[in-house]
Design a protein around this nucleic acid. Structure first.
Lengths: 135, 135
DNA sequence: ATTTGACCTGGAGTGCACTCCAGCTCCTAC
DNA sequence: GTAGGAGCTGGAGTGCACTCCAGGTCAAAT
C-alpha cells in the first residue's frame, strides 16, 4: 500500500509542506516516486512519520530527531545509542509531566480563589479593586 | 522588601532581558524605580512573575498572558473572565498531560524493543541490518 | 578622579519550526 | 485538446519568544 503526499499528510497529521520540509532537512528518507515524479509513501514511511510526531509532541527538538534518524539509517549497530537517546528523552518527558501537574495545582488554587471572590461579590461590578489579588 | 532586576531575575528564573521584555510588551506593570532610575521589584511583582512562569511552563502564549494581565489590571470586575481563562487553560494542560503520558508509553515500547534487539546481538557490530526496525 | 560594575534605552538579531509563493509539470476528465 | 487539480522545486517569509548590542548613566570603591 502506498500513499500520496496528501494522504500521508492526513494520516500523519503533518501538513504537506511539513512533509517536504522534513525530507529536505533529512528527518525522513526521500520516499519512492511514481512514474510522474510524485512522492509515494509506504506504510513503513507512515510508521516513521507517526513516531516523529510522538517525538515532536514531547518537545524533542528537530536537531535531536535528526540525530536519531541518522543513527537509525546507519543500521542495527547504533541501537544502543538510539535506545539511550530515547531513555534520556523519556526521563525529560516524565519530569515535564510532573512539572505540568504542579502547574495544574497552581491553577486549581487560583481558580478556587476566583470562585471565592465571585461568591463575595455576586454581580456587583460597581466597586472595583475591593479584594485585588489575594495572591 | 524590594529587589534589583538581577535579584528579580534570579528569583523568578527569568533573565534580566526577559524581565525588561515582559515589561515592554505589557505583561508586567512597570515596577517602581529607585533614585538612580533603576527598577525595584516588590514581593507582589515577584508573585506575579512567578505566576507568569507557571503559565509559560504550561505553554500559554504570551498574547493570552497579556490578555489576562490586562483584565487583572482592570480590577475585580473582570474576575469571572479571568477565572474562565484559567479554567479553559487548565483543561488544555490536562489534555496535554494525558497526551504526554501516551507518548511515554510509545517510548516505553520502543525502548523495550531496543533492549530485545540488544539481547539478540550482544556486541556483534559486524552484521548490520539484521532486524532493522521492528517498528 | 577614575575605574568598575550594575543598570538604562531603543533597536537589531537569533533560532526554531514551519508556511507560503511563483512558476513549472503531470495526469485525468470533459 | 484543453481545463483543472495535485504535485513539483527553490527560495522567501512568518510568528514566536526571546537575546544581544552599542552607547550611555549612575553610585560605590580605590
Amino acid at each position: 500500500m502506498t500513499y500520496s503526499i496528501a494522504q500521508a499528510a492526513t494520516r500523519s497529521g503533518l501538513s504537506i509542506d511539513t512533509l517536504r520540509y522534513y525530507e529536505r532537512i533529512g528527518l525522513v528518507e526521500p520516499p519512492a516516486r511514481d512514474a510522474g515524479g510524485r512522492r509515494t509513501y509506504s506504510d513503513e514511511d507512515l510508521g516513521w512519520l507517526y513516531f516523529l510526531t510522538r517525538l515532536r509532541t514531547t518537545g524533542m527538538p528537530i536537531r535531536m530527531m535528526r540525530e536519531y534518524a541518522q543513527l537509525r539509517h546507519l543500521g542495527v549497530g547504533t541501537s544502543a545509542r538510539r535506545r539511550q537517546i530515547l531513555v534520556d528523552h523519556r526521563a525529560g518527558v516524565r519530569e515535564r509531566i510532573v512539572e505540568l501537574q504542579s502547574c495544574v495545582e497552581t491553577l486549581d488554587y487560583k481558580i478556587q480563589n476566583y470562585e471565592q471572590i465571585e461568591r463575595c461579590l455576586p454581580q456587583t461590578a460597581a466597586h472595583d479593586s475591593l479584594i485585588e489579588e489575594a495572591s
